[in-house]
Nucleic acid binder design. Sequence first.
RNA 1: GGCCUCAUCGUCUAACGGUUAGGACGCCAGGUUCUCAUCCUGGCAAUUGGAGUUCGAUUCUCCAUGAGGUCACCA
Length: 475
Amino acid sequence: MKPIRTRFAPSPTGFLHVGGIRTALFAWLVARQSGGQFVLRFEDTDKKREVEGARQHLIECLRTLGLMYDEGPDIGGPHAPYVQSERLESYKRWAQKLIDSGRAYADPYTPEEVQAFREQAQKDKKPFLYRNHRPETPPAWDGTRPLRFKSDPKAYERHDEVMGDLKTGPEVVDDFILIKSDGYPTYNFAHIIDDTEMEIDLIIRGQEFLASVPNYLNLYEALGLIPPKMATMPHVLGPDGNKKLSKRDGAKDVLDYVREGFLPETLLNFIASLGWNDATEQEVFSVQELVEKFSLSHVQKSGARFDDKRLLWMNGSHIRELELDDLYQRSAGYWGPEAAGASDDYKKQVLALIQERLKYLAEIPELTKFFFVDLPVNGSLISEHKQLKKVDQGELKNLLQQARDVLAESDFSVQDLTDRLNQLLETTGQKPAVLFSLVRIATTQAPASPGLAESLALLGKERSLGRIDQQLAAL
RNA sequence: GGCCUCAUCGUCUAACGGUUAGGACGCCAGGUUCUCAUCCUGGCAAUUGGAGUUCGAUUCUCCAUGAGGUCACCA
């Protein structure tokens, strides 16, 4: 496989959501898989839309997810700078070539005049084409007016790595703006220059650019350049499935998911599987497997909806596959205040017990609280228990007292606890659903907890017996 | 409105033109000596509609319908 250079070129206008990440992920996967490079570039040519802190956020996002780029604004590279606003000289140079060859001209109209053309076209129910108003003798370009591309409309047949073979007629090619009156280039112009100069082999981007590609092809021709390969990603849709995922519709910052304790590898797996699969029945992929197995040719052409439930399941799945030490390291920062004084060793053992029921790290506190503090007796746990509520209080007290006596003899190893509790089952003739539930509730005061013997062993003898006494007193 | 793209269970998806249309999430029902979870078993659930090509269409063609994108001095 030939090394492929790809890029992710966001504009710093806000946080990165799932759709944006997916574009970045696929570009990263292709680069990694082929032994090529992944380039980060900021497209900041619209100063009005720029959002403070967005650059840092984008970088943090990619780093957190492990989508490390080989060249970029903050780390440099052979084609620096990787920020469009710092590459104006380049755009000017290429623009001049177009002017010299008669393929670019100054736009003589005011914005209002252009707007009037546009509205007229709309009224006539026709698409707006600037070139229908192309001036015969445009003024010399002095930098105060927009510079437009003089297009050479023609039909195109092209191949898209995801969408397949595409055809368009000449009617979609128009004289678009290359350089705005503020001196900054448009995306349409700048990205072509940058991708050329940065030797990008494959452009992966969202569907919103699909309709503009014929314009780009026309410009490549005018510049005498060979266009790179292109892959167009379908949009990730919001939960309603009717529009592309956007911040307004509640699309979350990807870092918010990380903060809630979704693992980076889950996020990558999930986002990749939104529109891609390897044609087998495998659902859960490690990052390494994604790198090995990813293929643009298996990317779905239609948009995909974001399903939180599936994400939750997948995260649990990845969590279960983690080594305990690894999981423990990642759990730092998620423990509740009640765990503050606990030793690493103890917390690690707690974690081992809840690993298989953990869906995301932020739920660690509620799942583990009773391992660290004695909770007050909660009578409803018994009164609403479907087995225990049928047994009268005296009998419960009697049973719990017997359990206490038996446990007092135990060394509190898991094995010994299991043996003694089983024995008690026989001597009392009780069902596990009654006896074990009773002891479990007494010692945890929680609606749910890990296995009884394991929990007791970890809590220890003193604490367990103390809690039983507390429950006995309340009965 | 023009142009472009897309269309399989509720959701994510699989199926050289030949399968009882498969898997996963979720949901439901069971099982794994207690709860929750894990794990296992089973169940419900889909080819947008209509023509055509073919011995045979989820698959190829056309039309319709629906959805999305685009027609910016935004990317």
